[in-house]
């Protein structure tokens, strides 16, 4: 079947009901695009063609969207390059992105089974606090704020004493 407007083969077939009357249109891709009844299929990415879908990036594409680790500042991209994480907090920061990688590396294993330290579960918050204090301490020493550093050092020591 040819296009209603030219000799090209019709690829878009439209049936409209206007005031109870059936109108058939047969158009080539170019005329269909001009009339606004179709979008130019070949150039448009699939996510612009479909109206309803769920978008799920694969982990490697997720790089830009994964937030850097708040504890050490490491980005997902840096981790991918080095293969080493920056701090214990990275495991929580990169949780979703890490999971498929862990499952691949550990034959599907994604949750710890085995020995746990006596303190397990009681002090993850304290560990984070210690980390933060140590970071501030580093900064204070670097900027030669020794009084502040001494105060922070006391807090670190106190926290360490508390945990034992």
């Amino acid at each position: 079947m040819k296009c209603d407007k030219c000799d090209q083969p019709a690829t878009v077939h439209l049936i409209e009901i206007v005031n109870g009357k059936k109108i058939e249109k047969h158009l080539c891709e170019q005329h269909a695009t001009e009339d606004g009844v179709a979008v130019k299929m070949s150039a448009a990415p699939i996510n612009e063609l479909l109206e309803k879908f769920v978008l799920k990036h694969s982990p490697s594409q997720e790089a830009d969207e994964v937030q850097a680790c708040a504890d050490c500042g490491m980005t997902w991209e840096q981790f991918r390059k080095r293969g080493l994480l920056g701090c214990p907090g990275c495991y929580a920061a990169f949780d979703d992105a890490l999971m498929p990688l862990l499952e691949r590396a550990h034959e599907g294993g994604n949750c710890h089974i085995g020995k746990a330290p006596r303190c397990a579960g009681t002090d993850e918050l304290r560990q984070q606090r210690l980390m933060q204090l140590r970071r501030e301490l580093e900064q204070a020493v670097a900027s030669e704020e020794y009084e502040k550093a001494a105060g922070l050092r006391d807090q670190v020591n106190q926290l360490e004493r508390d945990q034992k």
Binding site: P88, Y91, L98, L102, A105, C111, H112, G114, A116
Partner: peptide, 17 residues
């Protein structure tokens, strides 16, 4: 240590036990 991932290591291939 985390209850989900076990002993936390620099390389994720060693995490857990």
């Amino acid at each position: 240590y985390s209850s989900t991932f076990g002993y936390l290591t620099a390389c994720p291939t060693n995490v857990g036990t």
